[in-house]
Design a binder for these strands. Structure first.
Lengths: 231, 231
DNA sequence: CTGATTCTTTGAGCAAGCGCAAAGTCCGAC
DNA sequence: GTCGGACTTTGCGCTTGCTCAAAGAATCAG
């Protein structure tokens, strides 16, 4: 395998401010891997023997209920560490990580985690922040599920997605990985039918445009209005 | 203020295994306070300038939506640290902590947090575990909100409460702090009316018994059956 | 004891959104 | 190019659980 370039890490929060030598050492402990869209990077309950950095692509973390339904817990954009069960004192992964788009990741054996926290002082704090942000996001999602109507939840989900991963096009902002109605329903705790009906309605009104797993938001303001609607 | 007794801490996870001298020093940095039922211990968004240990009582962590609805994020039983924003890299409290029963807490200035993590090696790991457990609980709640019907959600909430804080009585297991229908509805993302109807029905069937904010579960098995019911 | 307050119960009507079903469309593989 | 599979659309009926409304307990302060 070719040597990984140091510039991959120099601007990412957990590693910025480290010396070239340190980064070199960290990279030398890593392996890079590629995952096809839809592939599992790790599964719920597996021993957390690696942690990962997403260099490119997009990850969806999902949990599966006893009855087989899936719900999406988080989306993780490129540039972030994930699979960091160790940061929350766990020995196993708390969910399944699926490649929502084609992904390039670096991975390290969990054994190195303790080295990192010991040797690179900013690492621990950076991890704590990451956990804090994700916890906050999950809490918000919970709040939405508890208080908003389906329409507002889907609007919120779309807004979050275009904020995190939007790509500006001439028509509007496109979510830059393929997303099915089913995926959206798993993010919002509803059914694909309801999502389909709503997107159709919004498309008629010119708020969004979609065809075959590509969704573009044309009128962000209107979507924000939907998201506000009390339920 | 009288000196606090060392036995308060010796058996609690973050401090067990520490020497008497260490515990003495930790206690000398603490202040103990009492909170009436319903009192706020801290509020959402306030600078997190203290962290707390709940010696006795019961804490409810709630968030308030823009439109004024409240949802209960967590319940914290006696013996746990809370207000540990620092462990997740935050400067402010992410929710409001309310005394669900009369509470006795120890509190430390956040400035001591870094001392604790530096001087007592088990502290950091213990905190990570606490965060992990709470994150897991929140995720489960989210999953429930997304996939279960109201009946199953309320059943699950009651089961969780009696497990965490149940007190065995001759009739069954009683939740040992006062809990209104409103409180239960804020835990399960529904209305107090629906909760009331359901508890009435369960009372007719002999599953639970309740009067004025005291709820006793008589038939745990039946409640578990309700909680399983697919939605 | 009395009045105020907070908590609970119950009814009636209604709408959001789910389940079911069936057909239509797009894409990729061969 | 066409076949198969995955994804999407849409209609209809029905249930869950919400809203609105009003009255009935229990508790507490004075």
């Amino acid at each position: 395998m070719p040597r990984l370039d140091e510039s991959l890490l120099t601007h990412l929060p957990p590693f910025d401010g480290l010396s070239r030598t340190d980064i070199r050492r960290i990279l030398d402990g890593a392996v890079s891997r590629r995952f096809e869209i839809g592939a599992d990077i790790f599964r719920e309950g597996e021993p957390a023997d690696r942690f990962f950095l997403l260099l490119d692509g997009y990850i969806r973390v999902v949990r599966t209920t006893e009855s087989g339904e899936q719900i999406t817990v988080l989306h993780i954009p490129a540039g972030q560490l994930f699979g960091i069960a160790r940061a929350i004192g766990r020995e196993t992964y708390p969910g399944r990580a699926v490649a929502a788009a084609e992904c390039i990741v670096l991975c390290w054996p969990t054994a190195l985690w303790d080295d990192f926290t010991r040797q690179y002082p900013g690492f621990t704090l950076s991890m704590a922040r990451t956990v804090g942000v994700r916890l906050g996001e999950i809490q918000s999602r919970m709040q939405e599920l508890a208080t908003l109507h389906v329409e507002a939840r889907i609007a919120t989900a779309l807004l979050r997605l275009i904020t995190q991963t939007g790509r500006q096009t001439e028509a509007g902002v496109e979510i830059d990985f393929p997303l099915t109605r089913q995926d959206l329903s798993e993010m919002t705790g509803t059914t694909l039918h309801t999502v389909s009906r709503l997107l159709s309605a919004w498309q008629r009104e010119g708020v969004v445009q979609s065809q075959h797993r590509r969704i573009t938001v044309l009128d962000r303001a209107r979507l924000e209005a939907c998201a506000q609607h009390r339920g």
